[in-house]
Design a protein around this nucleic acid. Structure first.
Lengths: 135, 135
DNA sequence: ATAAATTAAGATAAAAAAGTCTTTTATTAG
DNA sequence: CTAATAAAAGACTTTTTTATCTTAATTTAT
């Protein structure tokens, strides 16, 4: 996610960025991150070109995709489904005691991830002053 | 969590339950579950006695503890902290674009886990008709 | 006391996730 | 065309999590 933000913010300012730069800026192991970006690239969320002056960037359509797409691409849709307590029987018609509250929470998260685009998040994040590191 | 619910519901009806029974009822590998229960037992959330007619049960105080205590015991307090986006810079004074919404969500979850006790959840779950299986 | 039942603890193993390295492929600049 | 640069792909290693097995300790019933 942080890597995508970094790529997005560079795309917005017209640059492509190499894996080494991304890795160092978000403080993530280079080769490991490479795997993830390759995957996101295969899934079309980010783009890349090889060779000198190559690197990662995003298509403008991709910038308009919601944050949920990153989550889906990396982790799948698991977090969006199922009973919060992990109970099989729990459903709308046979809810566990926290079903409705959990549902509310999950809908909120889903809504927020679906209505915030990558580009929008980045613009609101502000200029390049902000660290995308985790620690 | 499901194991604790099973123990709680049996405690409420005055029984102790053995690891094999729990494992089969919640559909979890016996030895693995044993490790987790040993841990919860060391932490005082559940109790056990050995020997014939032994098994796991809960003290009545434990039944009054909030669900959050189970989460804490098993997973620690990580889920209760930090920026939802994993950004280091994000804080109350320098919030990321989703900070406030995330905070709302997290507070909701925390509140719901803190104000629902194990015993209460179980009583609301209803009688023994309900499967605690995951699938 | 002894045998049986039952959890506790420790060692080990298997599986999954995270991380690293090496080789290949594509692109560009000269 | 060639050399250099950069991502892609695949093999491999390490670490963490999940799961299993074995032995020990405790309790109860006889």
């Amino acid at each position: 996610m942080r890597a995508v933000f970094y790529i997005a913010s560079n795309t917005i300012s017209g640059n492509r960025v190499g894996i080494k730069e991304i890795a160092s800026k978000i403080d993530s192991p280079e080769y490991f991150l490479a795997k993830i970006l390759q995957d996101l690239s295969r899934k079309g969320l980010i783009s890349s070109i090889k060779g000198p002056n190559g690197g990662f960037y995003m298509e403008s359509e991709a910038l308009n995709r919601p944050l949920a797409d990153i989550v889906m691409a990396v982790d799948g849709d698991e977090i969006f489904n199922g009973c919060g307590m992990g109970l099989a029987h729990c459903s709308e018609t046979n809810p566990c005691p926290l079903h409705h509250e959990f549902k509310k929470v999950r809908n909120q998260i889903t809504h927020m991830l679906n209505t915030t685009t990558i580009g929008q998040f980045n613009r609101e994040l502000g200029s390049g002053l902000i660290s995308l590191k985790k620690v």
